[in-house]
């Protein structure tokens, strides 16, 4: 369990949030052009990184807004939080 600093509401307990998985996976621009392999890559394949990971979170029991987080998955330490649409901070 850890504390998350929601960019809209401030510091709240992690249990108020829903993890949304890996961030910056771009939705296919031409879905009808995609091969089965590309669909599998988009839908299912994940980096599942041990270490610094870019991911999405939703403050589901609060403002219900989505935002991005940079977190070290080996020790759950949060490195940065930034809003949707903002450029990810450089490591």
């Amino acid at each position: 369990m850890f504390i998350i600093n929601c960019p809209f509401c401030g510091e709240r307990e992690q249990s108020e949030f829903k993890a949304g998985g890996e961030a910056h996976i771009e939705r296919p621009k031409q879905p009808t052009e995609l091969s089965d392999d590309e669909w599998a890559e988009y839908l299912f394949m994940r980096k599942n990184i041990k270490g610094i990971q870019f991911e999405r979170w939703n403050h589901i029991h609060g403002c219900r807004k989505w935002f991005n987080m940079v977190r070290d998955t080996s020790n759950d330490e949060i490195k940065a939080i930034y809003k949707m649409g903002e450029k990810p901070p450089v490591k």
Binding site: K18, A19, N48, W57, S74, N75
Partner: peptide, 14 residues
């Protein structure tokens, strides 16, 4: 399970 990715071998109290 917790719903976030983690390799920390510890989960949330809730």
């Amino acid at each position: 399970t917790d719903d976030y990715i983690s390799y920390s071998q510890k989960g949330s109290h809730d």
